[in-house]
């Protein structure tokens, strides 16, 4: 018997239409195979990072439950047949981690604890350090227009 953490991605359209029936599918499967359903809450309704089964939004449902190890395969097989469940992930919870009483996803690291240099948030690819090998940064050939924005094309005539 182990404790498992399951997250279920439900069809947002059906969840809005009839939440109880949509969640009832998941709860019914879990209650059929699992011994104890510790915490089951609606986590979030959010836009997906990429479409799944042509759905761009989804409702996340989180459950902690205790079950024998053989039951997880049956839960998986049963949930795969349900159209309301777009995707699910069932993970064994570490033994030394307690089951939370309430749902709260807190940030593990505070903002002031972030030790990234430069203060701000750098959003660029992870290939910045390669530039230091060339040593071409201080070569002085900066590409700004160096003063010779001369007289080109003074076409200010022809208006009569």
């Amino acid at each position: 018997m182990r404790t498992y953490e399951g997250m279920f991605l439900l069809d947002s359209g059906q969840a809005v239409k009839d939440w109880d029936a949509t969640v009832g599918v998941v709860i019914g499967v879990l209650e059929r195979y699992c011994t104890e359903l510790a915490l089951n809450v609606k986590w979030e309704d959010r836009k997906l990072s990429y479409p799944i089964k042509k759905q761009k939004r989804g409702t996340y449902y989180l459950a902690y439950f205790k079950a024998p190890t053989e039951a997880i395969a049956q839960v998986r097989a049963d949930l795969l047949l349900r159209e309301e469940v777009l995707r699910f992930l069932i993970l064994a919870r570490p033994e030394d981690l307690p089951i939370p009483e309430t749902l709260e996803v807190t940030t593990m690291i505070d903002d002031e604890d972030d030790d990234r240099r430069g203060g701000g948030r750098r959003r660029r690819d992870d290939r910045g350090s390669r530039r230091s090998g060339g040593g071409r940064d201080d070569s002085g050939d900066d590409d700004d227009n160096d003063g010779d924005d001369g007289d080109d094309g003074d076409d200010d005539g022809g208006e009569d």
């Binding site: 997250m7 986590w43 989180l62 570490p94 030394d96 981690l97 996803v105 807190t106 940030t107 593990m108 690291i109 505070d110 604890d113 972030d114 948030r121 959003r123 660029r124 690819d125 992870d126």
Partner: peptide
């Protein structure tokens, strides 16, 4: 430093802070 025992995969804010754009 924060004495995190297990990295929580649901904490998207922390995970996205440790990934590129």
């Amino acid at each position: 430093r924060a004495k995190v025992k297990y990295v929580d995969w649901k904490d998207i804010q922390t995970l996205s802070r440790l990934s590129t754009g």
